[in-house]
């Protein structure tokens, strides 16, 4: 295995939080990504749009290090994710990448509070009490603190997504990746969740990449990246 490489910044140039270069990924019968380039800076909100099957979710999973690209490089905070062994990539994800998937993917056997503390517990660097306090703080900010002792099976779709957002943000990541976070919610619930997610990221100067079909997401983003058949069709800076 090759050694993890570090991206070096030129004087006066800031290192992108996420940098993808000529990334290719294929499923057994389909090429999902064909040479995608993407840079996301700190505090930037990027909406990744495109039709079903265009490679949006795959792009997000590759960026998170959950899928390894067939070729090309993915750097998160200057570290090449694809070159890291699984334990190191997982540790990087726990500390610096928050992940929100469409159905939340909470652990059904754990309480809401335990779910949110998971990234801190798995990292093993925080005391249980301080991890729980931090988790409780995020649940309060996301307006679901009263559900701390509930279990995922008892939550509505919107509540599950808020808990998933709290879990994604609890470790103070520099990059938040969200795959259709409003996909299973009604318009009011989706809008509220989006407000909470975007404001939390902007307040913490976090980079946010949202994969979406939802035009409301594109409306609050700084930039839109549209994919078509695994390639970037166009990029547009939104005002």
């Amino acid at each position: 295995m090759s050694e993890p490489t570090e991206q070096t910044a030129m004087p006066g140039e800031s290192v992108a939080v996420l940098s993808m270069r000529d990334v290719q990924f294929a499923y057994p019968r389909t090429a999902a990504l064909r040479g995608v380039n993407l840079d996301v800076a700190a505090g930037e909100v990027v909406a990744v749009t495109g039709r079903s099957g265009s490679g949006k979710s795959t792009l997000l999973h590759v960026a998170a290090g959950l899928l390894r690209p067939a070729s090309g490089t993915v750097h998160v905070l200057g570290q090449e994710v694809g070159a890291l062994p699984d334990a190191a990539a997982s540790s990087l994800r726990r500390k610096h990448v928050g992940l929100v998937l469409q159905h939340g993917l909470l652990v059904p056997e754990l309480s809401v509070l335990a779910n949110v503390t998971l990234p801190l517990v798995l990292e093993g660097t925080q005391q249980r009490a301080s991890a729980q306090a931090l988790a409780h703080d995020w649940l309060t900010r996301l307006e679901v603190a009263d559900l701390a002792t509930a279990f995922p099976g008892e939550l509505s779709g919107g509540q599950s997504q808020r808990v998933a957002v709290a879990r994604a943000l609890v470790a103070g990541p520099a990059l938040v990746l969200a795959d259709e976070p409003t996909g299973s919610l009604d318009s009011v619930g989706g809008e509220r969740l989006l407000d909470l997610l975007v404001s939390a990221c902007r307040a913490g100067n976090r980079a946010l990449v949202v994969v979406t079909h939802d035009n409301r997401v594109a409306a609050v983003a700084d930039r839109e990246v549209r994919l078509l058949d695994g390639t970037v069709e166009y990029e547009a800076v939104l005002t």
């Binding site: 997982s90 993917l105 059904p108």
Partner: peptide
């Protein structure tokens, strides 16, 4: 089936394969 959902949830939360 239930275990797979649980393990996937842990993976999304940052658990490594060895964990």
């Amino acid at each position: 089936a239930a275990r797979e959902r649980r393990l996937a949830g842990l993976r999304v939360a940052g658990a490594s394969q060895s964990q």
